[in-house]
Simulated scan of single mutants.
Amino acid sequence: MRVCNYLELEAHLVRSGIGTSVSHQRKALADRTDVDLLVSPWRGGTPASALQHALVGDGAFADFDLAHCNVVGPGSVAVARHARREGVPLVLHAHVTREDFAESFRGSTRVGPALERYLRWFYSQADLVLCPSEYTRGVLDSYPVDAPIRAISNGVDTASLAGFESFREDYRERFDLEGTVVFAVGNVFERKGLTDFCRLAEETDYDFAWFGPYDTGPQASPTVRRWTTDPPENVTFTGWVDDKRGAFAAGDVFCFPAKVENQGLVVLEAMACGKAVVLRDLPVFREFYTDGEDCLLCDSREEFREALSRLAADPDLRDRLGENARETAAAHSLDRVGSELVRAYEDVTAGRAGR
């Protein structure tokens, strides 16, 4: 089976959770399955070359047996229309919802109603919609999306984290971090709990570090601009780091007070590194994790403060949570991702996607 696994605007999304998820899909399919993987739907590999082929009658699209699109832009709409016209099975991956787009960029919350209508239309074209969690499946059902929906974990690439421990001294020295370091990883958005992260720092004595890029230009939200340009004294915003292993090495307690997540890839990465994780008590996290066993779940900033205090004072608790977290992360292997993707493709091709 030749599958086109397409990530529109790939160069711009490579540093995002969507980009990481697609990287996991492709690695799982290429290394662990017999799928013949194509990453561009365009004949010749680019939209420009596709246009040239179309003008001479060759057709704009490459040959593939199934289309799997990961974002929702005009290129993906064109692929979806081509698939419907040619009778090619179509899988759309719901990495984007109205809920998780809110509080990301300037104006992202205000466009929510229009975005929900668009997503309902776009995802409803699919023969099968994939999403990272049962929580997200429930969100899509509420729109409602008129297509079968199946949850498949984004997975975690443990090989990409191998040897992270060796980066600890370098990254702590580089960013002037000492003692118990409370940390987060990923793009800096208010949706990911930025204000609570900074307020927790103001209310405690630990070093806090957020490893990941942030915008301060016109597209940035006022909240992100405020905190990153004038952070609390014990908070470091590192910007993009050249190796994510350094982030997981430098930090001791992964603190993620996100307001909305479809799964939270960085949580799985922190767990794969054996870090104690402290999370907001969200339905999506309860779907995958167990409070007091492989994480600590918190409802309020007071509970976050108490959790950080317990972990800083009790190395045995940190170690126990971390070891259990490793086992949890192992259940989200790329082997599993690959086998579940192949099963989804086979079901779509055989017309049984809704079963």
Rank of each mutant, 00 (worst) to 15 (best):
P89R: 03
I149E: 05
A249M: 08
C4T: 00
L9P: 00
L296H: 10
G138S: 14
Y206K: 09
D65I: 04
P113Y: 03
L37Y: 02
G186E: 00
R301N: 14
V35P: 11
V235G: 01
R137L: 14
W210N: 12
R32M: 15
F164I: 05
F183T: 04
T97G: 02
R15T: 12
F248I: 10
D294P: 11
D65N: 08
V77W: 15
T109M: 03
C131W: 06
S21Q: 13
Y206A: 07
R2P: 02
V188Y: 06
R43F: 06
E202K: 08
G251Y: 04
V111T: 04
A48T: 04
A331E: 10
S309G: 06
G138A: 15
H332N: 02
D176L: 07
N70E: 10
A312V: 04
R84T: 06
F101K: 02
G193M: 09
R174V: 09
H95A: 03
C4A: 14
E203H: 14
V35G: 04
V77G: 00
Q263M: 13
R2D: 05
A60Q: 02
G292D: 08
D314C: 04
A126E: 06
A50E: 02
R280N: 13
S16A: 03
L128Q: 06
Y123N: 03
E293R: 15
E327L: 13
A151I: 06
V348F: 01
R168A: 13
A344V: 11
S133E: 12
M271N: 05
E233P: 05
A312F: 10
F208C: 01
V71H: 14
R15H: 12
E116A: 14
D100A: 08
G239D: 08
F237A: 00
V39I: 08
A329V: 11
F256V: 01
C255Y: 15
A270V: 11
E169V: 15
C69P: 00
F254T: 08
